[in-house]
Structure formats: C-alpha cells, structure tokens
Amino acid sequence: MTGDTALIATPSQTVGPFFHHGLVPHADPMADRFPGGERIRLLVRVTDGDSQPVSDALVEVWQRGVFGRMPTREDGTCEFETVRPGTIPDERVESQAPHISVCLFARGLLRQLHTRIYFAGDPALAEDAALGTVPEERRGTLLASPDPTRPGHWVFDVHLQGERETVFFDV
C-alpha cells in the first residue's frame, strides 16, 4: 500500500437480522445535548414494498454532532427523544433547512441508505440546497408530520419502495 495509488474500498454487506448484540442501541435522550430546544418525540416507521413493517431495521440519526440509534420493533417503528432542529437558541443559520440525517440498515439492504428528516411547515424548506436537488413531487417524502393527537410528537415514514418511496441520497 503506497501513497500513489488509490485503494479499492472495502465493500458493504448487509447487517442481517441478528445485529442486536453488536449494534447496541444508543438511546440516551438526544434532547439532553440541546438545552433550550423544543423537545419532541420523533417516531420513525419503516415499511417494505408490500407496505409491511420492517421489524429488523436499524435506524441511525445524526443531528448537529449528536448521534442516536435504535432498532425497529415488531411494528417497524422506533422512537427518538430529541429537540426540533432549528429551535436551539444559539443554532447558527446555514444554507440548509433544519433537519436530521438518517442512515438506515436492514436485512435485505446490501448497503446502507441515507435520507433526511425535515419538518413539515418549516419556512426554511424553500431555501434548502439538498431539497432543491429533489424533484418537487418527491420532496414530501422527506417531511416528518406532527401527530395531531399528541402535541410534540412527530412521525417520519420510510417507504423502501412503492408509490411514496422515500428519497434516498447518494452521499
């Protein structure tokens, strides 16, 4: 291995169904890292091409240097306790709307999938550079929605396939 020639990267392989003793949950409330932000519970729900829950996925989220990860349950969901991005008092404004980055793993995924969670109704969405690369009719798949029955609860659906297939990014 010399410095002149680029190396072939190690290929990705699926996490398979039995990762739980290796990729342990990182379940501490992310909200504790963001004092003063608007606390929310974010439910992520993963479904496959038959609209069936994906009960053996692993969801990793990244929000301004803070990491969380949870396996999905039987109903294909997992939950994070964090703050709504953009509500932290000293948060600096970038060319991007407030969002949470997602990395998704599952049996049947030979590589991880990357997506982003934006928040419906945010006026900054129109200015976001990443959303700008997404065809308009698909942007809605990147929005979390407020749960009308439970204040402070947001839901983000990940559709791996189908009419409402979520936008995934090549990062």
Binding site: G49, Q52, L110
Partner: peptide, 15 residues
C-alpha cells in the same frame, strides 16, 4: 430479501 426492500428509484446525489 432485496426484492421488496431495495429502493426502485435512483439515489439522488448530494453535493
């Protein structure tokens, strides 16, 4: 398992 789980649309390249 890839047949019902692999996204069918191309990934969107992020700058």
């Amino acid at each position: 398992s890839t047949t019902r789980r692999a996204p069918s649309r191309p990934l969107i390249r992020l700058p």
